[in-house]
Design a protein around this nucleic acid. Structure first.
Length: 814
RNA sequence: GCCCGGAUGGUGAAAUCGGUAGACACAGGGGACUUAAAAUCCCCCGGCUAUUGCAGCUGUGCCGGUUCGAGUCCGGCUCCGGGCACCA
């Protein structure tokens, strides 16, 4: 009978389902593994990126299950978000209906892949039962002083009366109506992530060697901790007058207090209050004012990409140490969101300041003497032109300058972060309502816990204009939880990153308790941290940082005792077609359903794992799928070679050369397996090793070695191609090979002779057969003999023997 | 612009610690089997030169360096990708 994936896959999927084979044990005493692939957004259909993500996760889950771990391998749906509203606008579908129908469909698609999910724990983040607990967390954070309201800048479309996501802004215009987008101030809710910045930074060390190092670097840079000096520039008397006495001084932050004597100007962000005042009161030329306003209306990214630009504000400040008058400019490279929106500028020792000073002919004063005369000089050196600090190493001067400022009470050493607090409010319908009430008497009041969840109204019309919650006739009208008077419900909803920040804890909580608790502490402490987390590299910063942050906050609120949610991380690359990201708009998608229909789930899984290492981008190739299918067929056909249903002792010494080689290949694959799951994640090389083993087995005909080979190979391949591997294991070995721990026998690797490469002058010239017991001197003389042809007229300068590998003779002409 | 990656045959890729570049596959070419096709099996397959045969040179994005030896380490580039806080 020939290989029939449809029949085999249906059979085993049903068996697994009936057996509840993948539900974890409730016992919290067993050794455990928590394997989690990032949950999907229910966009409508699964794509190859999902297949890849879940094939990898499933391989881990099945691998550890076979090692007798209690495995939690859950799935759920990241179900709130914009696409549901977009679908509502475009197709007049209700976001809720659209979302749950998508989930229904995608659940079936995933099921067809034979993934070993713990299905009883599945949920969607838009389930009211999930929202209920999330709202409780938000209220607790507010009570702990971690949550606050503040004005923020948003993209606003005046025509649609709505806030636009960055993604909805196309070349400065609204995606729907094409009108220019304005920046608008609006109140928003923030969580104080900066309070946790130090822990988020220092705990990265715990993840070293377990997370990809570039993710750790990215997170560290994102937090951007810097130590420096905060001090105030006092405005000159004349400038104070010009500003109508409204401003006396402003704060600046610098990481380079050692260059304080090199300050030749100061620069403010375009939206700094002083710049604003000058503009609003017509204290600078109208055309300059206009240009500054134009900068203020640019996004940070636009400013970063633009050339340096700035304008003199016609005011001066006093240098705190020298008393010199220093001109004040506004500059597009000074960010309002960082360090108070004002800097001291030292063009001699800072690249941005230098570029700016050069463009506008501002003075440049060197205060550090170094190895070269090229400015800007940003390396270490000795201070010059710096009064009492002259002659000091600049690295030492940093602390000394800060000390002087502190002594004179003119400033202090501070720590600054590039990280900004997390804005969690969105002016959208399809999200978790923020559980607050605005009361005329009491101000901002959190909802009573017993009133949770605050659910979304269903009778809404999503048109893309305005805010549906705001426009709803009755929903926002409520009673103040504090004084009982009429009040208004908050109409903002939560950022969807909030839902994906704690879902790992929800899965860990037994569904039987989902009504009573958000997170079960004991179970969370047992299951967490996630032992292996798998997801796209595009989440390297935001999602992973927010989830780490939320974990720490929930810990401090007493919900569990875990510091870091994800013990090991595998970031997978994207699936590409013709070098580009697969997307519907480009029409370069591959439909996983069609693939499974034609070849079966095992082939789809094998291909995605074989085609590239998981960390790398995967280039789609139709014909390579054929190759994966061919391998499975071949494996299926070789079942005829197995003669007994259990392993028998094999006399290694009695085996022929080809058989020995085949056996060695089988055990090499077995050895590789541990490495792959624990360290390299290079499933492609594990599969290649199995292919090599099968090829080698094909070159010999020893029944015992065939039996052993299939026994081991089916064990190794079960996590990758579970249906066929289970089927064959069932038929051939009663599945005993899927349970036992297989030991590596060193005897199979022993070789009779070792091949040494002979290199002369760095080039491979010939090979020699060497007895494993031979000494270095003997090997060398063998090598010289074999390479005599290339040694004529040469003298040997150096002899290198790499044991088990090669001989290299460095030569020069005599 | 800033932060982080990547680049190896016609294609996807492999190569513990710096030690034979191209394993394993795909595509392609040739052959066997077959009435024929499919399936399967066998052989060849980086480039250039040479060829009766042995072989020689060259080659891991580009330029330079360290080393007996560099795809791997160091310095400088180019191009491509991810992220940049309201896509998820």
């Amino acid at each position: 009978m020939s290989y029939n994936p449809k029949e085999i896959e249906a059979k085993w999927q049903k068996t697994w389902e009936d057996e509840g084979a993948f539900e974890p044990s409730d016992s919290l005493k067993q050794k455990k593994k928590y394997i989690l692939s990032m949950f999907p957004y229910p966009s409508g259909r699964i794509h190859m990126g999902h297949v890849r993500n879940y094939a990898i996760g499933d391989a881990f889950a099945r691998y550890y299950r076979k090692q007798e771990y209690n495995v939690l391998h859950p799935i759920g749906w990241d179900a709130f978000g914009m696409p549901a509203e977009n679908a509502a606008i475009k197709h007049k579908l209700h976001p809720k209906k659209w979302t749950y129908e998508n989930i229904e469909y995608m659940r079936k698609e995933l099921a067809s892949l034979g993934l070993s999910f713990s299905k009883s724990r599945e949920f969607a983040t838009c389930d009211e039962l999930y929202t209920r607990w999330e709202q409780e967390f938000i209220i607790k954070m507010y009570q702990e002083g971690l949550l606050y309201r503040e004005s923020t800048t948003v993209n606003w479309c005046e025509t649609c009366h709505t806030v636009l996501a960055n993604e909805q802004v196309e070349e400065g215009c609204c995606w729907r109506c094409d009108n220019p987008v304005q920046l608008k101030q609006m109140p928003g809710y923030y969580i104080d992530i900066i309070k946790y910045a130090d822990e988020l930074l220092s705990d990265l060390e715990k993840l070293e060697g377990k997370w990809p190092s570039q993710v750790l670097t990215m997170q560290s840079n994102w937090i951007g901790k810097s130590q420096g000096l905060e001090f105030e520039f006092e405005l000159s008397g004349e400038s104070k007058k010009k500003l109508d006495g409204k401003f006396e001084r402003y704060t600046v932050f610098t990481t380079r207090p050692d260059t304080i004597y090199g300050v030749t100007y100061s620069a403010l962000a375009a939206e700094h209050p002083i710049a604003k005042y000058l503009i609003e009161n017509s204290l600078i030329k109208a055309d300059t004012a206009q240009k500054i306003t134009a900068i203020a209306n640019m996004t940070e990214r636009e400013r970063a990409q633009a050339d340096k630009e700035g304008y003199a504000l016609g005011i001066t400040v006093i240098h705190p140490l020298t008393g010199e008058e220093i001109p004040v400019w506004t500059a597009n490279f000074v960010l309002a969101s960082y360090g108070g929106g004002a800097v001291m500028a030292v063009p001699a020792h800072d690249e941005r300041d230098f570029e700016f000073a050069s463009k506008y002919n501002l003075p440049i004063k060197r205060v550090i003497h170094g190895n070269d005369d090229i400015l800007p000089y940003t390396q270490e050196g000795i201070l010059e032109n710096s009064e009492t600090f002259t002659g000091m190493k600049n690295t030492e001067a940093k602390a000394a300058v800060i000390a002087l400022f502190e002594e004179k009470k003119q400033g202090k050493g501070t720590t600054n972060y590039r990280l900004r607090n997390w804005g969690i409010s969105r002016q959208r319908y399809w999200g978790a309502p923020i559980p607050f009430v605005h009361c005329e008497q009491c101000g901002l009041v959190p909802e009573k816990i017993e009133n949770l969840p605050i659910a979304l109204p269903e009778d809404v019309h999503i048109t893309g204009e305005g805010n549906p919650l705001e426009n709803h006739p009755t929903w926002k009208h409520c009673i103040c939880p504090k004084c009982g008077n009429d009040a208004l419900r908050e109409t903002d909803t939560l950022d969807t990153f909030v839902q994906s920040s704690w879902y790992q804890f929800r899965y860990a909580t037994n569904p039987k308790k989902w009504n009573e608790v958000g997170i079960d502490k004991e179970e969370a402490n047992y299951w967490l941290a996630v032992d292996q987390y798998i997801g796209g590299i595009e989440h390297a910063i935001l999602h992973l940082l927010y989830a780490r942050f939320f974990t720490k906050v929930l810990r401090d609120l007493g919900y569990h005792d875990i510091d870091e949610p994800f013990e090991r991380l595998l970031t997978q690359g994207m699936v590409l077609m013709d070098g580009a990201k697969m997307s519907k708009s480009k029409g370069n998608t591959v439909d996983p359903d069609a693939l499974v229909e034609k070849y079966g789930a095992d082939t789809a899984r094998l291909f995605t794992l074989f085609a590239a290492p998981p960390q790398k981008e995967l280039e789609w190739n139709d014909s390579a799928v054929e190759g994966a299918f061919r391998f499975i067929k071949k494996l299926y056909d070789r079942k005829e070679k197995v003669t007994h249903n259990a392993l028998r002792d094999i006399d290694q010494k009695a085996l022929g050369k080809e058989t020995k080689a085949a056996r060695a290949k089988v055990y090499e694959a077995l050895q590789k397996s541990t490495d792959v799951y624990e360290k390299t994640f290079a499933f492609n090389t594990l599969i290649a090793a199995c292919m090599e083993a099968l090829n080698a087995l094909d070159k010999q005909d020893n029944a015992e070695v065939w039996t052993e080979g299939m026994y081991i190979m089916l064990n190794l391949l079960e996590p990758i191609i579970p249906h066929i591997a289970t089927e064959l294991s069932d038929v051939l070995f009663d599945r005993k090979n899927l349970q036992s721990i297989l030991e590596i026998k060193d005897e199979v690797f022993v070789q009779d002779v070792i091949m040494y490469v002979v290199m002369i002058g760095g080039k491979k010239r010939t090979e020699i057969e060497v007895d494993p017991n031979m000494g270095q001197e003997e090997i060398l003389s063998l090598a010289k003999e074999a390479g005599s042809k290339w040694l004529e007229g040469m003298s040997i300068v150096k002899e290198v023997v790499v044991p088990g590998k090669l001989v290299n003779l460095a030569v020069k002409p005599i």
